[in-house]
Amino acid sequence: MINNKFDDDLDELLNDINSAMDQPQKNPVSYQIYQPLANQNQQQKRKCLSPQIGNQSQLRICSNLRCIKCDLQVKCHINKKWNKDVDYLIFRNYFNNMSMLSKYLTEDNQFNAYNCQCTNVNALESISAPQNWVCSGHTI
């Protein structure tokens, strides 16, 4: 008797569910892909296709580089050059410590010194940025 009561309750519940599923919904749920609205106040960014680095006399250098290896912004030290004794561990350990990094920079008006946490470059003339550095965009 108990099993029959349970079976009857289960059948009734399943019938209620089936009838609810057969009826069309009055307000169907619609899913939309989120797309941010274009705001006229929001400035668009333009990216360099092949970013260049160099000293400040060149006009085609990119001033907003980001490293895709260490995911950090590339720093530019204007009119400075990296010493020969600087190595990977210096940048790895002291990337945000400018007082320690400045010990490895020398004044030179012809160069700009660039670095992220994993790469460093001295640029005398306009050259292509290392492959792991990409343009983060410039406001138009």
Rank of each mutant, 00 (worst) to 15 (best):
K5L: 10
K5C: 11
F6N: 15
D8V: 10
D9F: 12
D9W: 08
D9M: 15
D11E: 10
L13A: 09
N15T: 15
D16P: 01
I17N: 02
S19P: 00
M21W: 06
M21A: 12
Q23L: 13
P24S: 11
P24Y: 04
Q25N: 12
Q25S: 14
K26C: 05
P28A: 08
V29W: 03
S30L: 11
S30A: 10
Y31V: 13
Y31F: 13
Y31I: 15
I33M: 02
Y34N: 06
Q35E: 04
P36N: 02
N39V: 04
N39P: 00
Q40K: 07
Q40V: 06
N41R: 14
Q42N: 06
Q42S: 06
Q44E: 11
K45P: 00
R46I: 13
K47I: 07
C48R: 00
S50I: 09
S50C: 09
Q52L: 14
I53T: 06
G54E: 06
G54Q: 05
Q56E: 15
S57P: 05
S57Y: 14
S57K: 14
Q58C: 14
L59M: 11
I61R: 09
I61Y: 10
I61F: 07
L65D: 00
R66D: 07
R66N: 14
I68W: 02
I68K: 14
K69C: 04
C70S: 04
L72I: 04
L72D: 05
Q73G: 05
Q73N: 13
V74G: 00
I78D: 11
I78A: 09
N79G: 10
K80R: 15
K81R: 12
N83Y: 07
K84A: 08
K84S: 10
K84L: 06
V86D: 06
D87G: 08
Y88F: 11
Y88M: 05
I90C: 11
I90P: 02
F91G: 01
F91E: 00
R92D: 10
N93P: 00
N93Y: 05
F95K: 02
N96F: 14
N96T: 11
N97M: 06
M98C: 11
S99I: 11
M100W: 07
M100K: 12
M100G: 03
K103P: 00
Y104P: 03
L105H: 01
D108K: 01
D108Q: 01
D108E: 05
N109G: 04
F111K: 07
Y114C: 03
N115E: 00
N115T: 01
N115F: 01
Q117S: 07
T119Y: 02
T119S: 05
N120R: 15
N120F: 15
N120A: 11
V121M: 07
V121G: 03
V121N: 03
N122C: 00
N122M: 01
L124Q: 06
I127E: 13
S128Q: 11
S128I: 13
S128A: 13
S128L: 13
A129T: 02
P130N: 03
P130Y: 04
Q131N: 12
Q131P: 04
W133V: 07
V134F: 13
V134M: 14
V134L: 15
G137K: 00
G137N: 01
H138N: 03
H138C: 03
H138I: 01
T139D: 02
T139P: 00
